[in-house]
Design a protein around this nucleic acid. Structure first.
Lengths: 155, 155
DNA sequence: TGACGACACGTGTTATAACACCTATCTTCT
DNA sequence: AGAAGATAGGTGTTATAACACGTGTCGTCA
């Protein structure tokens, strides 16, 4: 197993700056984790984005959320939340309806089938998180989270 | 500007574990940075993956690299490096030829046009890195890089 | 030597992402 | 009231990602 990013991507020259190395480290780490999560979710017919959307809708409860609200809450922004929800609706995990007094809004809600799927996934995802990150102490995880927050704020 | 991830994605409930929060923080940060980098590169007709591939080929020099070697070095693995190189070849940034004694290998090389493009991009990318990450001290960046390395090793 | 498996690439196809554009509804201002 | 702009959502199209499979080349071993 390679021990440094430079070995991992077999780069000969050292990084030009800490900023550059940090950019690549973040991208690389996210790619590795996203791939691992994707493998787990794929077995349940979900992509990581679909799973993320379902989690958002579970958090929203019975009121549901409109399309743009879901889009804005996604970890990784997608320009086409309509068809993301189309697919979740096709597989019966989400329902949509235009019902408020403002008829522009279409509320999406997670279905019982969606809730069941998430409930089945919860322990599996928790186990995956431990497997992927459990070798770091709580203190290190906290430091990492704080540093990433600093990166995003005033990025 | 939101100050915590929880506000950023408007999540009501606190995170279930530090591992979960770290997973989401990494994914979120990578998405934000990748989006910013994509905006810069888009103006030059490149995606972040294409840019990454060009950087790899510049590092390889005149010897070039074969497809699978490029694929393995990419920050974010793609299952179809052939067509990634197809596109770079179409735009004249890369050439390919089958020439070694082992006729299975197809060597890809960056062209002078590719080198010129990268040379034009170098200062722009460096400036972007500073803009995105320059507000963190060198010590914090080093800590972040090290922690991300720990995440990937024995992940 | 020739059959077999491994390897390096490429191709075909489907699903999704990305982008521009369009429709319907609402708000506001004259 | 009615026009203009903003907002929410959908559609059409192209590009790319993702996956399975096919082709040619090489090494190996009976």
């Amino acid at each position: 197993m390679p021990t440094t990013l430079q070995e991992e991507i077999r780069q000969r020259k050292p990084f030009g700056s800490a900023e550059e190395e940090a950019m690549l480290s973040i991208a690389r780490t996210a790619a590795v984790l996203d791939h691992a999560a994707g493998e787990v979710l794929k077995q349940h017919g979900l992509t990581t984005t679909q799973y993320n959307a379902l989690r958002i809708l579970r958090g929203a409860g019975t009121e549901g959320l409109c399309r743009n609200e879901i889009r804005d809450r996604l970890i990784s922004r997608v320009p086409d939340a309509t068809r993301l929800l189309d697919r979740l609706e096709e597989t019966g995990l989400v329902t949509r309806s235009r019902e408020g007094e403002d008829r522009r809004f279409v509320l999406s809600r997670i279905t019982p089938a969606g809730l069941e799927l998430l409930a089945r996934l919860d322990p599996e995802v928790a186990g995956m998180n431990r497997r992927l990150l459990g070798h770091l102490s709580q203190g290190k995880l906290r430091t990492l989270i704080d540093l990433l927050g600093e990166v995003r704020n005033q990025g």
